[in-house]
Design a protein around this nucleic acid. Structure first.
Ligand code: MN
Ligand code: MN
Ligand code: MN
Ligand code: MN
Lengths: 220, 220
DNA sequence: TATGTTTTTTTGGGTAGTCAAAATTTCTAT
DNA sequence: ATAGAAATTTTGACTACCCAAAAAAACATA
C-alpha cells in the first residue's frame, strides 16, 4: 500500500498534468509544489516508476500511468468527501477543511469513506465545487470559464473556487462569492489587470486577473 | 510534535502501567504488545527518554513522566471520542471502530476533536465503556469488578468491555452483553474455570475466566 | 557555435523506525 | 556459588524520506 507521501506526490502530479493539458510534468514544478528540494523529487520519481505509478523521462518530466491516475483519483475522492463531510455534517467552515482533509485523506478507510458518501447522498462536488471522483476512480472535470473568461454583465452562478488559501476563501465568503451563489462581472480592465464583480447580495469586489481566474462560473 | 509511532508507544506504556499497579513496564512486554523486536523497543525507549516522555532504567523497565502521561491521555481522548463518533453519528458497529480509531487518533486535529466532543454532548465513556480523558488530560478509571469478581445472582449492569477483538465484541453484541445492558451471573465454576451469565433479553452464555474478567459491571 | 544560465540529476549525509543476531546482564535453580 | 536459561541491550544493516552542494545536461543568446 502506498505511503501518504506517495499519495501526495500522485495528487500533485495529477493536478499539474491537468493544468498542463497532458504535457509531461517537470520535476522542478513538483519540487516547488511539494515544498521539497529538487533532488528529493528525482529520487521519488524513481521509486514511483519502480512501483508502476508513473512514466519518467529523465530531464523531460513524468506522467501518471493508468494505475497512478486511478490511485490519485481515489485520494482525491477521499479528500473531497472528507471536506464535504466536515462542512455538511460537522458544521466546519469551508476555509478550514482543506488542511484537515490533507491529513485525513490518508487515514480514512474505504468503509468509512463510503459511509460518508452515503450520509452525504452521493454528492457530485465538494465545498469548493471540485468534482468528487466516483468509487471506481472516474473523474469528470467541467470546463467552466472563470471570471476572467466569462461574458460581462450576465447573470452567472459560481460553480467552483480553485484556490485553497484560508484567507482567500474567507474573503470570498464575506462577499458571498461561494459555489451556488450568483454574481455579475461588471468590468474587466486590461491596464490595471483587475475584474470588477458584483455578487448577489454581497459587497462588490475588485479582483486581480490571477485571483479572478480561480473563480469558475457556469452560465445560467 | 510526536510522531504517530511515539503516540502508540506512549499509549502502550500507559496501558501496561495501569494493569501493573504502577510498576515499571518491561521493554519485553512493550515489544510483545507493539509487535516489534525487543531491540527496537530499547532504541525507542532511548529516544522517548531524550524527549522527556519516560523514565528509563536499563534492564528494569520504564515509567511515564507527567508529560508522557498527559500526552498519552490526549491520544486516548482522541481515540475514544473518535470511536464514539463513529458509532453514534456515523452508525458504525462497536466491533469495527477500534481499528479505525487506531489510525484516526493520529490524524484528527484538536479543533476537530473538540467539535466531535461537542456534537456528542461531552460524553464520559466510549462505546466499550472506556472513560474518555478530559481536554486537559485528566482520566478517571472506575474500579468496577468484572464478571469474575462480582456477586452471584444479583442484577448487574454492564459498564465496560476491555477487549477490542472484533469477534469477541460481535459475540457479546449477539448476546446483548454490551455496556448499558443488564445481566446476572448465575454460576461460577472453579473446575471448568467458567462463568455462566444470563444477559437481560439475550441468550445465556458460558465464559472462560479470562474472558469473564474483561467484562466489567457496576452494582445497581 | 561557443558561453553563460537554468534545470535536473548525482553524491554524500541525516533522521525515524525497523529487524536479526551477537553480546551482555539478570534471573533461576541446583 | 555457579551453570544455564531468559531477558535485555548492542551491533550492523535495511527502507523511506529528506537536504545541501557538486556534477551534468539542456537551454538561451549573443
Ligand atoms: Mn495529504
Ligand atoms: Mn476542495
Ligand atoms: Mn494508533
Ligand atoms: Mn474503546
Amino acid at each position: 500500500m502506498p505511503t501518504s507521501t506517495v499519495e501526495d506526490y500522485l495528487k500533485c502530479i495529477h493536478r499539474e498534468e491537468r493544468s498542463n493539458e497532458g504535457q509531461l510534468v517537470s520535476t522542478g514544478k513538483i519540487a516547488q509544489e511539494m515544498g521539497v528540494a529538487p533532488g528529493t523529487v528525482t529520487a521519488m520519481m524513481k521509486t514511483l516508476t519502480e512501483s508502476g505509478l508513473i512514466r519518467y523521462e529523465p530531464y523531460m518530466g513524468v506522467r501518471l500511468t493508468d494505475r497512478g491516475r486511478t490511485l490519485a483519483a481515489h485520494v482525491l475522492r477521499r479528500h473531497r468527501l472528507v471536506e464535504l463531510f466536515l462542512v455538511q455534517i460537522m458544521g466546519m467552515d469551508w476555509s478550514e477543511v482543506h488542511d484537515e482533509a490533507e491529513v485525513l485523506e490518508h487515514a480514512v478507510s474505504d468503509r468509512l469513506i463510503e459511509r460518508m458518501d452515503e450520509m452525504l447522498g452521493h454528492p457530485k462536488v465538494d465545498p469548493h465545487g471540485d468534482p468528487i471522483p466516483s468509487a471506481t476512480g472516474a473523474l469528470e472535470e467541467s470546463d467552466d470559464p472563470s471570471l476572467l473568461a466569462c461574458a460581462l454583465n450576465r447573470d452567472l452562478h459560481i460553480t467552483r473556487v480553485t484556490d485553497q488559501r484560508k484567507e482567500f476563501l474567507r474573503l470570498l465568503e464575506q462577499h458571498k462569492l461561494m459555489p451556488g451563489r450568483r454574481a455579475v462581472v461588471e468590468t474587466r480592465d486590461d491596464l490595471t489587470e483587475t475584474v470588477q464583480v458584483r455578487p448577489d447580495g454581497g459587497e462588490p469586489l475588485r479582483l486581480g486577473f490571477h485571483a479572478a481566474s480561480r473563480i469558475l462560473v457556469g452560465r445560467e
